[in-house]
C-alpha cells in the first residue's frame, strides 16, 4: 500500500482557516492527508506543538498564517516566522528533514492556494517517506 502521510496543520483563524474553508465552499479537491487545528493566530504556534505532532506520529507539520503585514493581530505571523526558522534548524539537528515542516501564508481568498499547498506538501512528505520519530521513541532502549 502506498504510504499515506499524516500532516498536522495549524491554521490561523482569520486568514488561513478561512482560506481553507473557501477551498471547501469552492469544492476544490485536495489530498486528504492534512488535518487542521485552528489557532487564533499563527503567533500562537509554538515549537512544542510542532514537536508534539511529530512525536505523536505526524509525518509533516504545516503552519499557515496571514500574509506578512496582514496579520489580524498586527505582527503575530512575524513571530511565527521567527520561530519557524529556529524550529527548522533544530529539526535538522535532530535528524528530521526540514521539509517536513512548512510555513505558508494563506489569505482568506486563497482557497485554491491552500488546496495546492495541501497537495504539494503531501507530495513532498510522500517523497520523504514516513517520519520515524514516533517509532524510534517507542523502541528506545
Amino acid at each position: 500500500m502506498e504510504f499515506e502521510p499524516t500532516i498536522v496543520s495549524f491554521l490561523c483563524n482569520w486568514c488561513s482557516y478561512t482560506g481553507a474553508d473557501l477551498a471547501g465552499t469552492s469544492r476544490m479537491k485536495y489530498a486528504h492527508n492534512v488535518r487542521v487545528i485552528r489557532v487564533m493566530c499563527s503567533g500562537r504556534v509554538e515549537p512544542t506543538f510542532v514537536f508534539k505532532a511529530f512525536r505523536e506520529g505526524a509525518d509533516g507539520v504545516l503552519i499557515c498564517g496571514c500574509h506578512p503585514g496582514d496579520c489580524h493581530y498586527h505582527e503575530g505571523n512575524y513571530k511565527c516566522l521567527r520561530r519557524y526558522h529556529l524550529i527548522k534548524k533544530y529539526l535538522d539537528q535532530m535528524g528530521i528533514e526540514q521539509d517536513r515542516l512548512r510555513l505558508a501564508w494563506i489569505s482568506a481568498s486563497e482557497g485554491k492556494q491552500f488546496a495546492e499547498l495541501a497537495d504539494e506538501m503531501t507530495e513532498t512528505i510522500k517523497s520523504l517517506g514516513p517520519c520515524k520519530v514516533k517509532n524510534v521513541m517507542e523502541t528506545l532502549t
Binding site: T6, V8, I37, F49, K52, A53, E56, G57, A58
Partner: peptide, 14 residues
C-alpha cells in the same frame, strides 16, 4: 488543549 487535540488527532489515526 492543543497538545491533547494533537494527541487525539493522531491516536485515532493509529
Amino acid at each position: 488543549q492543543i497538545l491533547s487535540q494533537i494527541e487525539g488527532l493522531m491516536s485515532m489515526q493509529l
